[in-house]
Design a protein around this nucleic acid. Structure first.
Length: 372
DNA sequence: TATCCGTGGGT
DNA sequence: TACCCAAGGAT
């Protein structure tokens, strides 16, 4: 295709500017690569298990490495192959995922595992085919293709966007700048060691080219970085302003039966905390509106706790009023609620907002004793 | 294109 | 305290 003459952009690298060398980044990676449970050492001839790469990448979506590691270890030990994960009951998978957040990931992960297992148990070594699987978007498809199969796919995550914005001093704000940052990243992707390169750019963003206080002297691309020359590194990438977070309130019931069983319910499959186990309660409404005062899920001596559970979701903050009761062996839940044995073990299988409420209520309920 | 969807750590 | 941010995807 013929090159159309392009309007020069004020923040574009001049044609004679030194082009960052992927080999320099790979040399840094050979030295500085983090050891991660799903990662093979840099330069290793053997590719990592595609199942482990896929599992780690799903867990790492919008989630920090430190948070993922224990969950990855648990999953890989409990379900060592995609076939074994595919055969697992959904409620067990959701319970094992509890606390990691973005629960639609877990359901899509299981759907994906079942598709792959039914097709023979091998992940496709092709970016487009990966992209067609549930829970695998542009980033994850490129990451699996590159890391598991050493295909020269361009991974673009938040790290890569930040590194490119600085390297080329792209001053236009996100998210509008995404297509251009992707194109810049694609222009650097090497044919040699693309899997290590993909991980190297992300490691660079995670450990050197950090959002605040980047460690420019430690950067293998320090001499090539336009933002560093301009003194802009710490200010990039720029971002469009975001909306203020609203505040909501609600009521939850923590019911403890004499035998230690906890009163729970299964949430609707879609939406917030979809498909997870939760506590019965009312609607969560804007704090300025009247509180939804729901009927108890089961008759009992319900008492309001002084303490409230506070939790912050991505797009709103929540304060939960807690109503707690010890319930007799005859207690009969209504409206889909049910008892599950071993309240303390169950709390670990709840989304964090509910786990907080249970942890506030249990000591008081246990101290009160059955005869209260 | 914009909104929805969790959580925990850093500053 | 308040805000930012993280190996994003689905709709």
């Amino acid at each position: 295709m013929a090159e159309a003459p392009q309007e020069p952009r004020p923040d574009a690298p001049c044609p004679d500017a030194p082009r960052p060398d992927p080999a320099a980044l790979l040399a840094w990676y050979d030295r500085a690569a983090r050891r991660l449970p799903w990662r093979t050492p840099p330069g290793a001839a053997a590719r990592p298990d595609p199942y482990a790469v896929w599992l780690s990448e799903i867990m790492l979506q919008q989630t920090t490495v430190a948070a993922v590691i224990p969950y990855f270890q648990t999953f890989i030990r409990r379900w060592p192959t995609v076939a074994e994960l595919a055969a697992a009951p959904e409620d067990q998978v959701m319970a094992a995922w509890a606390g990691l957040g973005y629960y639609a990931r877990a359901r899509n992960m299981l759907r994906c595992a079942r598709i792959v297992a039914a097709a023979g148990g091998r992940f496709p070594a092709d970016e487009a085919a990966l992209r067609a699987l549930p829970g695998i978007g542009p980033y994850t498809a490129a990451a699996i293709a590159a890391i598991a199969f050493d295909i020269p796919a361009t991974v673009v995550d938040g790290n890569v966007e930040r590194v490119m914005a600085r390297l080329f001093a792209a001053t236009d704000p996100l998210p509008a700048a995404k297509p251009r940052l992707r194109a810049l990243a694609a222009g650097l992707t090497p044919a040699r060691r693309p899997g290590d390169y993909a991980q190297a750019v992300m490691d660079l963003g995670a450990t050197v080219c950090t959002p605040r206080k980047p460690d420019c002297p430690a950067c293998p691309w320090r001499e090539d970085c336009a933002a560093r020359r301009l003194g802009l590194a710490a200010e990039l990438p720029r971002k469009a302003p975001r909306r203020a977070r609203p505040h909501r309130r609600g009521v939850v019931f923590v019911g403890l039966r004499e035998d230690g069983a906890l009163l729970l319910e299964t949430r609707p499959p879609e939406g917030l905390l979809g498909g997870m186990t939760g506590l019965p309660g009312g609607a969560w409404r804007e704090a300025a509106e009247p509180l939804d005062d729901p009927a108890p899920p089961c008759p009992g001596d319900w008492r309001r706790l002084t303490a409230e559970a506070r939790h912050v979701f991505t797009h709103f903050a929540l304060t939960l009023e807690i109503r707690a009761a010890r319930l007799g062996p005859e207690a009969a839940p209504e409206g889909g609620a049910f008892f599950a044995p071993d309240a303390r073990a169950r709390a670990a299988e709840l989304p964090t907002v509910f786990r907080k409420a249970v942890e506030l209520a249990l000591p008081e309920l246990e101290a009160a004793g059955p005869g209260r």
